[in-house]
Every structure is written in C-alpha cells, then in structure tokens.
Design a protein around this nucleic acid. Sequence first.
RNA 1: GGGCCCGUAGGGUAGCUUGGUAUCCUUGUAGCUUCGGGAGCUAUAGACUUGAGUUCAAAUCUCAGCGGGCCCA
Length: 472
Amino acid sequence: MPETKVKKTEDFNEWYNEIVELADLCDKRYPIKGMNVWRPYGWKLMTHVDQLIREEMIRTDHQEVNFPLLIPESSFKKEEEHIEGFGSEVYWISHAGLNKLEERWLLRPTSETAMYPIFSIWIRSHADLPLKTFQIVNTFRYETKQTRAFIRVREIHFFEAHTCHVDFNDAEKQIQEDKDIAYRLFEKLSLPYILSKRPEWDKFAGAFYTISIDVLMPSFRTLQLGSIHQYKDNFSKPYEISFEGEDGKHNYCHQTTYGMSERILGALVGIHGDNKGLVMPPEVAPVQVVLIPIIFRGEEKVVLEACDDLNIKLSKEGIKSHIDKRDITPGNKFYDWELKGVPLRVEIGPKDIKNNQVVLVRRDTAEKQSISNDSAVNIIKEELNKLSKNLYETANRLLNENINRVNTIDEAKNLKGIVELPWCGIKDCALEIENILDGNTLGEPIEDNACNNSCPVCGKPGTTWMRYAKSY
RNA sequence: GGGCCCGUAGGGUAGCUUGGUAUCCUUGUAGCUUCGGGAGCUAUAGACUUGAGUUCAAAUCUCAGCGGGCCCA
C-alpha cells in the first residue's frame, strides 16, 4: 500500500503539508505569502462546509448579506479596543489610480466596522430587532508568523454572523443559539470540540466576553475553529446603533458575533486524514460513494450498465454518487479516491454481475465486503452512518485522552494536549503557567468549572479551572 | 521580535564542497495493447527563484529581494 512519505504519527506538520498538496486542496505557489489558491477540490470541500453553515443560519432565521471589502479609516477607528487589537495586522490602501486618497481605506480583517455604520441606519425601532445577519467572505490579516495552509493564512475564507438585540438578555439567548449551532454543525463534521471562555486579556478586541471553539489536532496542539462574542453595547455606542423602544425611549443595541473560518477544513484534513490521504465525513464529501467499473474487453457494456443502475438508485435516495469512467486502471482510481477521502467505494466487475452483487469498501477502516445488489442501497446508507460515527469516536478519543484536570504544574508538565489547572483569577498567575508549560491559556471551561483547589502559583484558593495548551 | 535551513521541468530529485556539456523518477502529449490495488512498449514535450557583484565562464562563490520550511521568544 503506498502511503504518504511522511507518516501522520511521526511528523504531523510535514504530513499535513504533504496531504494538502497531494489531495489538490490548495496551491501554495501563489507569490504572496499566506495567500493560497483554492484548487477545485479544496474549494468544493470548503463550499460544502459553507453550505452546512448556511443551513444552520437559515434554520435560525439569519439573513445572508454581503458587505464591501473596503472600510474607510474613520469607520475603523471608532471603537478604541478594536483598533488596538487589529491595528498591527491590517492592509491599507493609500492610493487609487494616480491619486493619493484623502482618507485611507483598509481591507476588512473582520467586518464589524464595515457593517455597524450601516446597522445604525437600518435599525430605528424595536420592531427592527433582533437583526440577525451573516456573510461568508474573504478577510485579510497581515500575519507575521509562519503561515500554514488553512490554519494560518493572510487571506481568510471567513464566516461571520452579526446580530443586534434589544438588551443584554436577548443577546445572551443568541449566544445560547450559537452554541446549539456549533453542536449541530460539528457533529455533522465528526469534529468533537471544547468551549472555553477566554480570559479578559485574550478576548476579542472590543468584546464583553469571548467563547472560543477549539479542537485538538493530532499534533496535540489545539486549533481554534470559531468564536462567539458577546459585545454588550461596546460597539453600539461608538457606532450609534440605537432604537426607539415601545416606551418611546432610545436605547443602544446589544450585539453578538459568531466567527468561523477555513480552519474547519484544516481540522477535517488534520483530524480525520491518514497516511493514504483525506477521509471526509459523508456530510462534507462532494462524492459520497464512488463507483469503479472493472472493465474487461468485450464486457464494457454490461459493467457500465450495472454502474448506471446503482448510480440512479443511489441518486434517488439522495446519496451523492459518481461513476469513474476515466480510462485509467482501477488500481489507479482506488488510490485517487482514497486520497480525496471519498467515504465509500463500490467496485463492479463481471464477476459481481454474475453473482448479482457488488464489492463495497470503507475508506476509514479499509474493510471490504461483497453485498447483494438488492440490499446495496440500504447497506450503503448504513455504512455511511457508521463511518461518520467512527470518525467522531476516533477523534473524541484523541480529545478525551488528552484533556486532563490536575492540581500541580509538575503533573501538567508531563501531559500532552490540554491541561486544566486551578486558577485564582489573577492574570500574572496564568501567564506564569503559560510560561512554564510553554503553552497558551484557552480559557475557562464553559460548564463544570467550579474549583476549590489552590492556585499552583500563588497558593490562593482557585475560583475556576483554567485550560492551557499549545495551540496553532 | 531573534536565529537556522532551503529554492533546479507540473511534482520529487542528482549536480554545488573543488565554477565549464544539468541526472534520474514521476507527470503531460500522440499511438497501440491493457484493466479485481499505482499496466507495458514506442515517440515527444518540459527546469537552474529574481536582481546585482566576482569571473574568460555562475545552478555552483558573495550580497540583496521575493517565496518556502524549522527552532526559540
């Protein structure tokens, strides 16, 4: 069995780079650092993920919008913390044609400052609320650190939901809905994750609080896939997003945002992939079942007809199937589709036709079975579900085995992945631990975070648990 | 922010120390035979990251840019 040159378990980072190239996801040869070309297959996977997000947005009554890429400097500068947080990583446009611009424009690093001046116009009365919008666009951040396909890039394929509410409580309900969206979405992607409330010094620039969605990669580093922010009225005041209530009084909106990015694809590649290539959960796979005709001279027609039959049956059941009719040998096709991560492969040859059966192969386990033609569709459906569950369980094992709650720094030092230590609430204690463990704070667990044990740095009673990990 | 390494056809490489004709595999194209795990034969196409310097002569030596990878903070 040919496999990647670099094994996933031996050198995850190298393996990841190799897979991204081999599977035709992106082309890193574009001559600007961190700006990669989406190749057809990579883009197809990304748009499938986007579509799952869209479905969640539609289900929860969000409206899709599309704001301009360019933001005037004056709009950007209205919220002070926000500028501080993003100022050092924005791209500026200072010239247009032959003219120097009177006011500079910037490429959105995120769209608060593009949207909120307009929200201020849109929202007049309580009847306009809640306003629930989202867009899927590219954003730009001038990363100075090492870039990595899908994981750290300078042009980011980005999902952002922005909502406005009558008060804090209604915004809090939105946060709950956001958590529910995460639950449903990541289950479809077979990606187990954890939610952490970011510490004060690490929250989104301008937010009241930030909840991060992190997954654990097989390199034992965490990857932040998304964030949910409660803004309170931090942005609505400078951007003057206010409404007239039933009582005739004017109030500022309370806002939330929800952001996710192409990192989801990075996680799908990194977490589910193996030394033969990608393994895509059926919900994302553009092709869920690939049919490989095994052609012998003189028997082309029967074999292709049998493929067509099954293909039609599968389509009727809403299963995305594809017949690979390319003029290359079957073995070649096997490797190709394995690399692309297609969940199930069906082989149909003259022998099978005689026996009224087909050969079914699972991508995740490589299990091969002959199944009767009549029950093929049902078995395929079942196997797709099993595969999806198996991916989730494997990933969940990785996460659960590598998230540990301990009381001392010495214990934490010996652990890979994510550790939870008691925290007294003092910033310097957390930073000290970051230093010693050579990791970052992820934040406090959202649930079950009560802690009475003493802080391993200062010895004062802990108030919560704090998570630390090496992260991307 | 600091340091180290690298850049040769579409992909992977040899050559660089000691300057002189660029190696092999894969891929692409055309044709015939093939097809249950990367088929065979024949023909053919394709490269020294950019700029400056040293030199009779630079893929090779020096410097800078751009790009990539790694380590430390």
